[in-house]
């Protein structure tokens, strides 16, 4: 225990839990993120209940583009789990392929989102225009920020796979990044119907 190998070098598995620090840590972080996005959904529900009429998503938002975005994010969820699978099978080439695919899909998602927002701004629809748009911009904005965070993490892992492919903690970190990315996808799975379809 007191050896110089600092805590960070060996994947420490909890004696009683059988879970590595990284996995427990990322699940704790996702727990707090669930609370964060649940608060945004509570706000959305409370604001909607408080108002007598609420615009339908169809006539305000671009639903086809939203659908495409959802499919993009789902595909990226698949590619990130494939990347994790290849990391376990120690196939670096395929890992880098799938991870770059994930990053590409993430960037595509942001581009489509940026285009959609641009469309709204062009029509003069800003967060201050109506409470529906305020909720829309806040929720999709905070989600986009989380997507950007995930992209940065994934790119760092892609870049690290060059030098630290054999680092004992590398697979744990890929798993953690994958779990976070799946969470970001799940938030969008709930966000899309709530804002666009109801």
């Amino acid at each position: 225990m007191s050896s110089e190998a600092a805590v960070m070098d060996v994947p420490h598995v909890g004696a009683s839990t059988g879970v590595t620090n990284a996995k427990l840590g990322i699940w704790l972080f996702l727990a707090s993120e669930v609370m964060l996005f649940s608060t945004l959904f509570t706000t959305y529900i409370v604001l909607r209940l408080g108002s007598s009429s609420w615009p339908r998503g169809w006539n305000v938002l671009n639903v086809p583009l939203g659908t495409v975005n959802t499919l993009v994010l789902i595909t990226s969820s698949v590619t990130v789990v494939m990347a994790y699978a290849k990391a376990i099978e120690r196939k670096r080439g395929q890992f880098r392929l799938f991870m770059s695919l994930t990053i590409a899909l993430g960037v595509l998602f942001l581009i489509l989102k940026g285009f959609e927002w641009g469309q709204h701004f062009h029509n003069g629809e800003f967060p201050s225009t109506s409470i529906f748009l305020a909720a829309y911009f806040t929720m999709t904005g905070l989600h986009a920020l989380h997507v950007i965070g995930g992209l940065i993490t994934n790119s760092i892992l892609l870049w690290l796979s060059e030098t630290q492919w054999d680092h004992p903690l590398f697979i744990g970190r890929v798993e953690a990044a994958g779990l976070y990315w799946h969470f970001v996808d799940i938030v969008w799975i709930f966000l899309f119907p709530a804002l666009y379809l109801l």
């Binding site: 609370m35 706000t43 800003f126 967060p127």
Partner: peptide
Amino acid sequence: LLLAFPPMEAGGVLQLMDRVLHTSF
């Protein structure tokens, strides 16, 4: 700390939007 702080963080973001982007949450 883990589970109680995020709701106020979301609330803070909403209030920041109210102040900076003139939304009306």
